[in-house]
């Protein structure tokens, strides 16, 4: 599972530059949370495009996580990239004033989609393409908000597990305190990914790597001594989140249907 950081950096920085240029963009924009994934993405983008061509939006909900805002700022300053802080609380509060709820998932999803909405708006304002910051662990477990933090134009880090991103982060020079930070989706105060998922990322990634990359079966993993409950939980999460990794099905009526047999590449004629 170990990656060669130098090679991965070379591939990912080339990918960012190449994809942007194909679509006639020279600038990239991303949401910077102060966490590991978006910091790594910002480092890659700055190395690939040059600091003046990267725009980071820091989008806290009021003063809920002041430390994260400070960390995000620190990354932006360290890289010398452009950044802007936008407080999403006025928009989110206005909505929940009309449709109140105490469901933390509903509130978290709304916030993630508010950030997405602002990113897409600024993408046009700044003529910058949106860089996705979802990793392979989240994507396989469905641990993200559909059309929220999972939305982007291109995603440089989507085929790296969380633990591999940690490895890459150290090589890129991401500040140690960010690498060591407890991962959180920031859904509510005190929330951490590992607590919510009930396992450490190290364990999750080891199981995912065996199941997905090496195509081992749950039975194989059981024999190898992995915890039965963890294997079952991960297998269930992968299955139940398939819809987050796909475009919605279209009822086929004609001979030729978008998505099924009207087939063109994303990079067509670029």
């Amino acid at each position: 599972m170990k990656i060669n950081e130098i090679f991965v950096e070379k591939v990912l920085t080339a990918f960012i530059k190449n994809e942007l240029y194909k679509f006639n963009f020279s600038r990239g924009i991303l949401g910077l949370s102060g966490g590991l994934d978006s910091s790594v993405c910002a480092f890659l983008a700055a190395k690939s495009l040059g600091k003046t061509n990267v725009f980071a939006l820091i989008m806290p909900y009021g003063d809920t996580y002041p430390q994260d805002v400070d960390d995000a700022r620190e990354v932006a300053d360290l890289l010398g990239i452009n950044s802007r802080i936008i407080d999403i609380s006025p928009m989110v509060d206005a909505y929940f004033k009309i449709f109140p709820t105490s469901d933390r998932i509903i509130i978290g999803n709304k916030m993630a989609r508010e950030r997405m909405s602002i990113l897409y708006d600024f993408s046009v304002r700044e003529k910058a393409l949106i860089l996705g910051t979802s990793n392979k662990t989240e994507s396989l477990l469905g641990y993200g908000t559909l059309h929220g933090d999972m939305a982007s134009a291109i995603n440089p880090i989507g085929d790296l597990y969380k633990t591999q991103i940690r490895q890459l982060a150290a090589h890129l020079g991401v500040p140690t305190k960010i690498i060591k930070k407890t991962p959180t989706a920031g859904l509510w105060p005190g929330q951490t990914d590992e607590k919510e998922l009930g396992m450490t990322y190290k364990n999750i990634d080891m199981i995912l790597y065996q199941l997905v990359d090496l195509r081992r079966t749950p039975a194989d993993l059981l024999k190898k001594g992995f915890d039965k409950k963890n294997i079952e939980r991960i297998t269930r999460l992968i299955k139940s989140s398939e819809f987050k990794r796909k475009l919605p099905p279209i009822a086929k009526l004609s001979w030729r249907t978008v998505g099924l047999n009207f087939l063109y590449s994303f990079d067509r004629e670029k």
């Binding site: 599972m1 170990k2 060669n4 090679f7 070379k10 591939v11 591999q164």
Partner: peptide, 10 residues
Amino acid sequence: PGRGYSEEDK
């Protein structure tokens, strides 16, 4: 297309 991690630079 390239596939698979390797600890080498490829």
